[in-house]
C-alpha cells in the first residue's frame, strides 16, 4: 500500500498554512496525526497532491481549562486528553470517550482536531462535542469564525468548514452533572456499532438538563434535542427513558454494514443510549 506522490509542507505558523491552502485550493489538505488520512492515501482512496502537516504550527497543542470554558487545541491528542488530570476533573466524559477510541498507539497520534474536522461518521469526538455543545474555531483567509458543533456536520465528510479554512480549536462550556460515554464495538480499533454521549443535570429527583448525541448511526453525528427534552422535567422513570430512546430512534438513520443490518443497529442504539442515560443519571 503505497500512496501517490505528493508535495509535503510543514509551515511554522497559521499564515503559512493558509498560504499553501490558498495557493493549491482543493489540491491541498491539512493533516494533524494523519491516522485517518494516511491509510486512505495508502489505499489510494484519498488523492492529496499537497499535504500540509500542522505539527510545527504553534498554539494548537494546549488544553486550557478556565472556569467557564475549556479550550482544546486542534493538535491535542486522545492520549493528551486521557492523561490531563485538570481536564478530567472538570469534564470526565472526555477521558471516558477518548479511552474508547482506537488503540493506545493511535491515541498518541490521533488528535481532537482531526477527529472532529474530518467529518467521518465513525469518529467519536463529533457526537461527544455535540453533546457538550462545543464550538469549533475555524481560521481562514478572512480571519477566525466559530461554528457550533451541532451545526457543523452536513453529511459524511461534508462539514461547515470551507476548503481554505483550518479547524484550530474546540471550545467547550464546562459541563456539569452526570455523564456517560457508552460505546459498543466489535473489537479494539473498531468504530462504533453504536455510541452515545450523555450529560445530565439532576436537581432533587428531577432532570433539569439533558444533552444527548450518538455516533455512527447516520452519515453525521446525531444530536437529538427531542431525546434530551424527553428527559427534562422527569425523574428518569421508565416512560421517560422510553420516550428519549424513541426520540433518538426517530432521529438516526443507520445503514447496513459489516457491523450488522439496520434493525440490529437501531435496537442496539436504543440499548446503548438507555445504558448511557442510566449511567449518567447514577453519576448526576
Amino acid at each position: 500500500m503505497i500512496p501517490a506522490a505528493f508535495e509535503y509542507h510543514r509551515p511554522k505558523d497559521m499564515a503559512g498554512v493558509l498560504a499553501v491552502l490558498e495557493e493549491h485550493g482543493d489540491d491541498a489538505r491539512v493533516m494533524a496525526g494523519g491516522h485517518s488520512l494516511i491509510p486512505m492515501m495508502k489505499l489510494r482512496m484519498a488523492d492529496v497532491p499537497h499535504l500540509i502537516d500542522l505539527q510545527d504550527v504553534g498554539g494548537l497543542s494546549d488544553i486550557d481549562v478556565q472556569s467557564d470554558t475549556i479550550r482544546i487545541g486542534a493538535l491535542v491528542t486522545q492520549h493528551d486528553i486521557i492523561t490531563n488530570d485538570a481536564l478530567t476533573a472538570v469534564a470526565p466524559i472526555l477521558r471516558e470517550a477518548a479511552l474508547q477510541i482506537a488503540d493506545p498507539q493511535v491515541r498518541y497520534m490521533g488528535t481532537v482536531g482531526g477527529n472532529v474536522a474530518n467529518g467521518d461518521p465513525g469518529n467519536d469526538m463529533p457526537g461527544l462535542m455535540q453533546c457538550l455543545d462545543a464550538s469549533f474555531t475555524l481560521v481562514g483567509p478572512n480571519g477566525e469564525r466559530t461554528v457550533a458543533a451541532r451545526e457543523f456536520y452536513e453529511a459524511a465528510y461534508m462539514t461547515a468548514r470551507e476548503d481554505d479554512e483550518v479547524l484550530t480549536a474546540v471550545v467547550i462550556p464546562v459541563p456539569s452533572g452526570g455523564y456517560a460515554y457508552e460505546k459498543q464495538k466489535r473489537k479494539i480499533g473498531d468504530y462504533a456499532t453504536a455510541a452515545a454521549a450523555v450529560q445530565l443535570i439532576k436537581q432533587g429527583d428531577t432532570c433539569v438538563h439533558a444533552a444527548i448525541a450518538m455516533t455512527n448511526l447516520s452519515d453525521t453525528p446525531i444530536f437529538s434535542e427531542d431525546a434530551g427534552a424527553a428527559l427534562i422535567g422527569t425523574s428518569l422513570d421508565d416512560a421517560a427513558l422510553k420516550a428519549a430512546v424513541a426520540a433518538m430512534l426517530n432521529d438516526i438513520d443507520p445503514t447496513e454494514d459489516n457491523r450488522g443490518p439496520i434493525a440490529f443497529k437501531k435496537h442496539v442504539a436504543g440499548v446503548i443510549l438507555r445504558r448511557a442515560i442510566e449511567r449518567a443519571w447514577s453519576r448526576a
Binding site: 459498543q184 456499532t193 440490529f264 435496537h267
Partner: peptide, 16 residues
C-alpha cells in the same frame, strides 16, 4: 457468532 448474528438469534427466539 458476531454481535449482530447473536442478536438476531435472540430476536428470532422472541427474547427482545
Amino acid at each position: 457468532h458476531d454481535h449482530w448474528r447473536i442478536w438476531r438469534t435472540a430476536n428470532e427466539l422472541g427474547l427482545h
